[in-house]
Computed example of a mutant assay.
Amino acid sequence: MLSAKTEYACLALARLASEYAGGQPLQGRRIAAEEGIPEGFLVQILQELKRLGLVTSTRGACGGYRLAREPEELSLGEVIDLVDGPPTGASNVTTPTPLGEAVTEAISESALAERERLRGVTLAEITAQATAHGAMFYI
């Protein structure tokens, strides 16, 4: 499970990817309002994403944030790796037993497989999927 910070970072980047073709920066408060992210928390996240080189920012009335790279070049797995760090095989058990080590290994292998899968999912694919879902009408 992702932390709220990481999930919001992925969501903010996906929103920036969806607006990327327009060429204009997107204000943080707009991202917060449209995606239901607490604005103060989002500001901190966007600052970290800027420090990590994932977004650029422009000051002023028409300022805001943009992706630093093309949406096709940035994957969810890479974002999670940068924000959370690589998955670890760390255990919370202070005195590991063979059973505990087996459980930790299984969980670690699962986390690695999940992250590898997410490295294959680009922000462009996420925005295309969202657009396809938005085009569906439910009765």
Rank of each mutant, 00 (worst) to 15 (best):
T97E: 12
H133N: 13
E78C: 07
L118F: 11
E35Y: 01
Q129D: 11
L123Q: 02
Q129K: 08
E34I: 00
L99W: 14
R51H: 06
I126P: 04
R15T: 00
A135F: 01
R30N: 04
P71L: 12
E48R: 13
Y138R: 12
Q24E: 14
E35K: 03
A102Y: 08
G134I: 04
G89P: 02
T104M: 01
Q44V: 09
F41R: 09
A128D: 11
E109L: 13
A17C: 05
P25Q: 07
S18L: 02
L112D: 03
I107D: 01
E7I: 03
R115W: 06
I139S: 15
G64R: 06
T104V: 02
L52R: 07
L99S: 15
V55P: 03
T122H: 08
I139H: 15
L49M: 04
Y8W: 13
I80Q: 06
G64L: 12
I45N: 06
T104K: 00
A4G: 00
V103A: 08
L42Q: 03
A124Y: 05
G60F: 11
T127K: 04
L54T: 00
S110Q: 10
Y138Q: 14
P87Y: 05
I126E: 07
Q47W: 08
G100E: 03
L118D: 09
V103R: 04
E70K: 08
E73C: 13
T56L: 11
L11S: 14
T88P: 03
C62G: 15
E125P: 01
G63V: 10
A124E: 10
S18V: 00
Y20K: 03
T56Y: 07
T94A: 15
F137P: 00
L54W: 03
K5V: 04
L13S: 06
Y8M: 10
E70Q: 10
Y65R: 05
R59T: 10
A68N: 03
L13Y: 05
T97C: 12
L26A: 13
A124T: 02
Y65C: 06
P25C: 10
R117E: 13
E19R: 14
Q129A: 15
Q27R: 15
R117Q: 14
F137G: 08
T97S: 15
A124S: 12
A102P: 09
L112Y: 07
L76D: 07
